[in-house]
C-alpha cells in the first residue's frame, strides 16, 4: 500500500463549483435513502404498515361494518386519512436518523467536515418524501383496485401531489424531536407524538364530541384538510385549505427553525 502517494499539488486547485455542491446534495440523498432501504427496521414499517392497515380496515373490514357515522362518503374520508398516515410515518420518524447520528458523533463529524450546510437535513427530508411517495402509491393502488373510493383520478392525483411535499412540516417536527433526544429515546418520543396524533386528529375515525375542537392542534389534521380541500372533496373539507397550508408552513418554520438552530451548534 505504501507504493501509492497522495499528490496534493499535482491537481490544479478548483473551487467548489455549484455543480459540485449539487452533486454533494444528491450523493447525500442517494446514500441516506440507500441506508434507509438497508435498514429493514425502518423501511419495512414505513412502506408496509399503511397499505396493510388500509387493506384491512379500509377495504376488508369496512365492507362488514355497514353504515358509518361519516355518511356515504366514508370510504373517501378513510382513504384520505390513510394517505395522510402513510406520509406521517416517514416524516415523524426522520428525526430518529438525526438522533442516531448525534449519538454516534456522526453529526459532529459532519459539522466538522466541509459538507454543504443543510445537506444533511435536506437529504433526510428527501428520503422521507421518497418513502412517503412509495407508501402513498401503494395505498392508492390498493384503493383503486378495491374500488372503494368514489374520488376521480384527478382528485387522487391532486391528493398525491399535495401530500408528498406534506412530509416537510412533519419532518420538521421529526427533526425537532431528533435534535433534542437520544437515539434510543427518539423512536419512543416519536411514537409518543405519533400515536395520539394519529387518533386524536380524527384522521380515520369520528371523534367523540368533546375532542373535536382540539383537532386543530395536530399537523396531521391540517395536512389531511389541505389534501381534501385541494382535491375539492367539499363533503369533508372542514377547514379552509389555505389556512391549513399556512398552519403547516408555521409548523415547518417553528420546529424546523429550532431544530436547525440547535443542530448547527450541538451534537
Amino acid at each position: 500500500m505504501a507504493t501509492t502517494t497522495i499528490e496534493l499539488d499535482a491537481v490544479p486547485e478548483a473551487p467548489m463549483s455549484l455543480i459540485k455542491v449539487l452533486q454533494a446534495y444528491l450523493l447525500e440523498v442517494k446514500y441516506d435513502t440507500l441506508h434507509g432501504l438497508r435498514t429493514p427496521a425502518l423501511a419495512v414499517p414505513f412502506l408496509v404498515i399503511p397499505v396493510v392497515v388500509y387493506t384491512l380496515f379500509g377495504v376488508i373490514m369496512a365492507g362488514e361494518s355497514g353504515t358509518s357515522e361519516l355518511g356515504p362518503g366514508a370510504a373517501n374520508y378513510v382513504f384520505a386519512g390513510m394517505c395522510t398516515f402513510a406520509v406521517l410515518m416517514p416524516g415523524i420518524f426522520s428525526g430518529v436518523g438525526i438522533a442516531l447520528e448525534r449519538d454516534g458523533k456522526l453529526h459532529k463529524l459532519k459539522r466538522a467536515l466541509p459538507m454543504p450546510a443543510g445537506a444533511n437535513l435536506v437529504s433526510k427530508m428527501a428520503m422521507a418524501m421518497i418513502f412517503a411517495a412509495a407508501a402513498l402509491t401503494l395505498v392508492v393502488i390498493v384503493a383503486l383496485i378495491a374500488g372503494r373510493i368514489t374520488l376521480s383520478g384527478t382528485q387522487v392525483l391532486i391528493m398525491w401531489i399535495v401530500l408528498v411535499p406534506g412530509s416537510i412540516p412533519i419532518c420538521a417536527i421529526g427533526f425537532f424531536i431528533g435534535a433534542f433526544t437520544s437515539g434510543s429515546a427518539s423512536p419512543a418520543f416519536s411514537n409518543l407524538l405519533f400515536l395520539p396524533m394519529m387518533w386524536l386528529s380524527g384522521m380515520f375515525i369520528p371523534l367523540p364530541e368533546f375532542l373535536r375542537p382540539w383537532v386543530v392542534i395536530w399537523p396531521s389534521f391540517h395536512l389531511q384538510q389541505l389534501a381534501l380541500g385541494a382535491a375539492g372533496v367539499s363533503e369533508f373539507s372542514f377547514f379552509p385549505p389555505q389556512m391549513a397550508a399556512g398552519v403547516l408552513v408555521g409548523f415547518t418554520v417553528l420546529f424546523g427553525g429550532i431544530a436547525i438552530h440547535r443542530l448547527a451548534r450541538v451534537g
Partner: peptide, 14 residues
C-alpha cells in the same frame, strides 16, 4: 480540512 474524530459511528449500513 480532513477530520478523524474519536468514537464516531459512520452510517452502519453503508
Amino acid at each position: 480540512v480532513g477530520v478523524m474524530l474519536q468514537d464516531v459511528n459512520l452510517a452502519p449500513e453503508l
